[in-house]
Design a protein around this nucleic acid. Sequence first.
RNA 1: GCCCGCUUGGCGGAACUGGUAGACGCAUGGGACUUAAAAUCCCAAGGCUUCGGCCGUGCCGGUUCGACUCCGGCAGCGGGCACCA
Length: 799
Amino acid sequence: AAMEKQVHPAKWTYENIDAMRAQLQSMGLSIDWSRELATCHPGYYKLQQELFLAFFEAGLAYRRKSWVNWDPVDQTVLANEQVIDGRGWRSNAPVERRELEQWFFRITRYADELLAAIDGLDRWPEKVRLMQQNWIGRSRGARVHFTLEGRPEPLQIFTTRPDTLDGASFLALSPQHPLAQELALRDPALKAFIAECEHLGTSEAAIEAAEKRGHDTGLKARHPYLDDVRLPVYVANFVLMDYGTGSIFGCPAHDQRDLDFARKYGLPVIETYRPVDARDPTEAELQLHRPRFAESAVLTVEGEALFHIAAAAYVDKSESVAVRYTAAGFMAESVVTPVDAVEKAIAFLEAQGLGEGTIQYRLRDWGVSRQRYWGCPIPMIHCPTCGVVPVPKQDLPVLLPDDASFERSGNPLAHHPTWKHVRCPKCGAAAERDTDTMDTFVDSSWYFARFVSPRAAVPFERAAVDRWLPVDQYIGGIEHAILHLLYSRFFMRALTDCGYLDMAEPFAGLFTQGMICHETYRDPEGRWLSPDEVTKADSGPLTADGRPVTVGRVEKMSKSKKNTVDPQRIIELYGADTARWFMLSDSPPDREMEWTDAGIEGAWRFVNRLWRLVTEAGALPPRGAAEPSGLRSAEGSAALAALKAAHRTIAGVSEDLERFHFNKAVARVHELANSLGELSGKDDASAWVRRFGFETLTRLLSPMMPHLAEELWQYLGGAGLLADQPWPAADPSLTVESTVEVAVQVNGKLRTTIRLPRDAEKGAAEAAALADQTVRRHMDGKAPRKVIVVPNRIVNVVV
RNA sequence: GCCCGCUUGGCGGAACUGGUAGACGCAUGGGACUUAAAAUCCCAAGGCUUCGGCCGUGCCGGUUCGACUCCGGCAGCGGGCACCA
């Protein structure tokens, strides 16, 4: 944005903050602005640098090489988002991979703990807990040693399915695997293949979605226990260096990806399991098919009973068949003595010295180095003699220079003329600062804990932390379900271990908002356009100067794709309350939603209608007037019905707000307004109920339309601010009706409804249903075989 | 490709733990008021119908007296996939 708008990032950021603050204030949100902080302010990032030093001290921050996307034309590191079909988004040059020394946070130290603690997050959505679990991805499996012919050192592979080793038909290495890199030095074709793989960039999505391809290295591996089996060793584009050992064995019969690969390169597909069928295997079969690692040929894998086809069976019969492995529904009760096939296989490998059982995590350490200007400088100094030296705490903050230049690509801090040149704090010799800044996810991993003592000289004031944290109710977009939330969970643990805090979980309750989505637009040059740069014509959407616009898919609003809508327009046109009411009424907040302006007029009409409803209702009894006697006993009166409606609305809205069902609360307020509008009686009871109803309505509205609610409160003679009044309470004796409408079905089809006293006896309900004319007609003169009665709900007559 | 969701009238959605599908709103049509328009108010409305009913919650199948809700499979859309944050 700074480059595009020719503005300094600081100015751009602070101006945006000002605009956002003004917008939030004009919405009338209840925010304690005295605690506002900005993570780009030196006061904040100074403390963040202190935390970084503490992490370094504790061994939680370390340096190692890692791969990045490199744009060879722009000479800059690209984010995955900036790699489009293997090319840089600005230069359009094929992307390369490059290895850089970078800083990492050791989140994997907490892998087990982060996983186990998910169970305790009982006020988190189940889907988020699942996503975090899968992200950490703890798997039991085995490291297996393969001997390579003509090479002294064995190749280690990791597998979660050692029980399918009998069906191995190839090995595959990641293009970044050291062995692959070594072989490429002497094999130009392999070198070219690896270079081609590297154009995919570093994103897992791109790598896994690409067509599966491999290059045969010519090496042969001995099968660990099948003496006459030799396996070809490939380098394959789908093997990830970051997971396991960066090398795998392929069992095409039991893995779709391996099967695709085997088909492509003509490799054998060797079945090792077949669903157990209805009959018991014979003794001869059990012997023939018994795998090396188990006593029985019937094994369970992932809960399914399967019949193992041991190596001997197919070697003898030269059997080679492709069968996809879907065993659901084949569990045969007569056969199974459950055996955990994976554990058996691990025990076998260990006993034979062919491998060992391990636990593998999908979770990787968090790379925090960014080659960017606008961020928190990493407080480290590189000295030619002392190596990596932390900036002494008293020298913090390491300030960003204001006079960076953004004309050149690459890292402005690296090519700033003076900034990086310092003396080594240890030896005093000339040294250089680390020119990387931290991932901004670091900023957001502790900001919530800073709010409790935003001006303190230390990162956290313990008394305030103990008073406020963990956060009772955290609210954020579902796009943060994994990274931000996991990083924050890691941070609290790391800070605890560094002595700053004493807590593990930052967020006791979590509510995830759905994304607000919008169509995306591009001009003929492919540049993103914002919705207000696009005009809708009969021939289709056009740019401001009348050129055709390409409409892209509907996706989450984002700055980079410009598909954002400014709510300020609505506030200016209709006022904050209309905007708030519209947003609350439109969709449940946890669902994604496509933004549309249709309906805003309806919210505006309702705001006006409420005002008229109250102010044009005629004379009301004074505030606090006693309830007319006899109102509650006047069964069937319109006034009592409206009074009950008001109490039901209190109960319903209270519950809806508590559960974040704002759109339902809105619907209930509409209903109450409707029923009060219909209460036209001139009698004392009606007038009293009208006042009670209006006051109730006003109170219930106050969180949603605070400005209108305060005005109505004054109009109704309320003292002080409505915001300071207690929330209304429903009278339980008025929220239930004495009779209920009960549906009557015949053979499961709704035929009529009957009105019964609440909580009527089952027998009475049955009798009433059977006596009904419509029911009798549909029973066709037959006697009921069965009658199901669900009290207050339904009677189902089965004939 | 993998992980997680979602899918209900013309539209946004409601339906609590398997028990009357379509609350409430938007848009629409008709009417009232008005010289007229706006605003407002009233009425109608899932589809089909021989007016008895029948069919309907993305698609196919299953469990159940009963399925939007549970189970199996599939499709479409959205989020995430570690440098968008």
